[in-house]
């Protein structure tokens, strides 16, 4: 029996030597690398047009964001704090410095620099500003409607509010709160909470809206502000009467082997 065992060990050792040689041959073959799949390098986050991210590697093989090849939406976050600034103070919210960050919206809004200097800087004596509204009675402003297409189909408040309820009269790069004080575009929650108090309370506690980063209550989070998800000029999205605009869905799951389509799903087993 020992003889047999020792024989087999010898055989195995020989085999090992052969295996090592063949492995070395294999390694010598030119490694064929699959061409990297083309994915869009720029993707939108929550809704189209609100904020974008550009894909780059934070560390090798670990990008800051992965974009969907079908819809162009952000599909995965490696670095949740990419391009963020500290969120300002917010009443009723006690967060340690630097633990709450937001993505600045100010630079994203293209009209912003122009608005403040050309017409609405509020310092010109006669021409500038041309005509300040004397009261809060809505008046159509053709210039503005031409510049911001959403205004033609303005739904927010169903005709009960107008521009000056949210935008500052003389500082056009700012929003306005109840006291007429300017509010930054990066902190729209201070303005929206004027009417949507219940939503503000839920948002403050993390129930409404979205936060990414560290989930523990003391962790650093990136907060998504109101206007990153809702278009304030068209919150209801037409007849759907929902807060979030319609988007293209990501591809559906794979069909099981042998199934040509999923029409059977549409036949509801419960008779209507």
């Amino acid at each position: 029996m020992r003889k047999l065992a020792s024989l087999s060990v010898i055989l195995a050792l020989c085999g090992g030597a052969f295996y090592a040689v063949s492995a070395a041959e294999k390694a010598a073959e030119p490694a064929k690398e699959a061409a990297a799949a083309k994915t869009p390098l720029e993707c939108f986050e929550s809704r189209k047009g609100a904020s974008e991210l550009t894909q780059r590697d934070v560390q090798p093989g670990w990008p800051n964001v992965k974009c969907s090849p079908t819809t162009g939406a952000a599909l995965w976050y490696g670095d949740p704090y990419d391009g963020t600034v500290p969120m300002g103070k917010m009443p009723g919210l006690d967060i340690a410095e630097g633990k709450a960050v937001v993505k600045p919206r100010t630079e994203k809004l293209a009209l912003m620099p122009m608005c403040g200097v050309s017409c609405h800087n509020g310092v010109g004596p006669a021409f500038n500003p041309p005509k300040l509204p004397k009261d809060k009675k809505p008046a159509p402003v053709p210039t503005m409607e031409a510049m911001v297409p959403d205004l033609a189909n303005f739904q927010h408040g169903r005709g009960r509010i107008w521009c000056m309820d949210c935008h500052h009269t003389t500082q056009r790069n700012m929003l306005v709160d109840h006291f007429g004080d300017p509010v930054s575009f990066d902190q729209p929650q201070l303005l929206c909470g004027k009417c949507h108090g219940d939503k503000l309370r839920d948002w403050r506690d993390g129930i409404h809206g979205k936060r990414i980063g560290e989930f523990v209550s003391t962790g650093k989070k990136r907060w998504f502000t109101c206007t990153e998800c809702h278009n304030p000029h068209n919150v209801q999205d037409g007849a759907r009467n929902k807060g979030f605009i319609q988007v293209q869905p990501e591809p559906s799951p794979q069909l099981p082997r042998g199934m040509a389509n999923a029409d059977h799903e549409k036949l509801h087993p419960i008779p209507h």
């Binding site: 599909l75 995965w76 993390g206 989930f215 523990v216 209550s217």
Partner: peptide, 25 residues
Amino acid sequence: RYPACVEVCPVGARKFGNLLDPESE
């Protein structure tokens, strides 16, 4: 860190937290 599905949900329907922490979402 939040799970990947929570971070990516565009409408913020997904919430994650510590059930033992009364301050969690």
